[in-house]
Amino acid sequence: MTRPRAEAVALASRHVGRPHPARHLGEACRTALDDAYCVGLTLAADAALAQRASLCAAGPLAAQGETLQINLGEGPCVQALNQGSPVLADDLADPRTIRQWPVYAQQAQAHHIRAAFALPVLSGPAPAQQAGLVLTLYRDRPGPLSAAELHTAQLHADAAELLLLSAPVPAEDDLADAWLLPVEAVVHQATGVISYRHALTTGQALALLRAYAHSTDTDLTSLAHAIVHENLHLPDPPETDS
């Protein structure tokens, strides 16, 4: 980010050095939006969210909205990272949105999420595997963001970027422990366990974890916890012709 706005600098300065700065920033964003929105903040090393840290989930919709995206590997946050620009889904019941994210749109609505707006905020020249930061707003009713709301959200997103840039840069394998310890850290641990047990790449291990969670209708984090802490073994993936 170049030439950060004075407003973002001032906002970030209020949270530097505080414990759980992302959580405080997410709550501040939610308050600034008059609690009409729930706020999630995601740090990810790739668009598929194979390495992902949920840094905050402020409000009753955010935790489920964030969890759905890592469980399913689709949704506005994933797309925003992939295309490097905002994704503003003002009605998850819209047929075009359902075609784009068929599973996410359906399950998000089942959890009373009717609109989601993802703003990727870390950009510019960076080394390979540069992390991307996305602020996502969740709302229980359809409708577009106003210009004032978009300005407020972008301001907090810019402040989040400044906070991240002021933190020590993690190594690629340490993303799950960067900045703040995410609730999904156990997912990364389980992916490593599966990769070792089944001789898979981390991407293949995550795909196996997601597939098993989906087939058994199990929350991804709960399944990962059972693998890491209860020695649960997944069945071997089916062999494919080379």
Rank of each mutant, 00 (worst) to 15 (best):
H156C: 09
Q154W: 14
A205W: 00
I227N: 07
D236S: 13
D91C: 03
P144K: 08
R30V: 05
D219M: 01
G124R: 14
P170F: 09
T42K: 02
A178D: 08
V134I: 11
R52Y: 04
L92A: 01
A205M: 02
H20E: 15
Q69I: 01
D174M: 11
T191Y: 02
S54K: 04
L88G: 02
D173C: 12
Q83S: 06
L165I: 08
Q100E: 04
V193C: 07
R14I: 06
L232S: 04
L135M: 15
R5L: 10
N71S: 13
L155I: 05
Q83A: 08
Q79W: 06
A160V: 07
G26F: 00
A93V: 01
C56E: 13
A213E: 02
V16H: 12
T31L: 12
R30W: 00
P86L: 08
D236H: 07
A63V: 08
A171W: 01
S54M: 14
A178F: 09
H214N: 04
D177P: 01
L133V: 06
L43K: 01
Q83R: 14
L33H: 03
A47R: 12
H225I: 04
P4K: 09
V121A: 09
T97H: 10
C29P: 07
L180F: 09
Q189D: 11
H24D: 13
E149S: 04
A226Q: 14
V121Y: 09
A118R: 07
Q106K: 10
A58T: 01
L165C: 12
H111Y: 06
A44E: 07
L55N: 12
Y196C: 09
L41C: 02
P102C: 11
G124I: 11
A116P: 04
L33F: 00
Y212F: 08
E149G: 07
E66A: 12
D34V: 12
E74R: 06
A115C: 10
V121E: 15
R141W: 05
A178C: 11
R52F: 03
A178K: 11
D219K: 05
H233Y: 06
A190L: 06
L11W: 01
W101P: 06
D217V: 10
R3L: 13
N82T: 09
A118M: 01
M1A: 12
G65C: 02
H225D: 14
L162G: 07
C77I: 12
A190P: 03
D217Y: 07
G124E: 13
E74Q: 10
D34Y: 11
G143K: 08
Y212E: 12
A10K: 09
R99F: 05
T67W: 03
A171T: 11
G192H: 04
A110Q: 15
A6I: 08
A167F: 06
D219S: 13
D34P: 08
L72G: 00
L49A: 10
T218I: 00
A126K: 15
H112A: 12
N82E: 15
D217I: 13
P21A: 14
R14H: 14
V87E: 14
L41I: 10
L150M: 14
A157N: 06
L11A: 11
L68K: 06
A226G: 01
P125C: 13
V134C: 14
S123I: 13
I194S: 00
T42Y: 00
A58R: 02
D219L: 05
T240K: 13
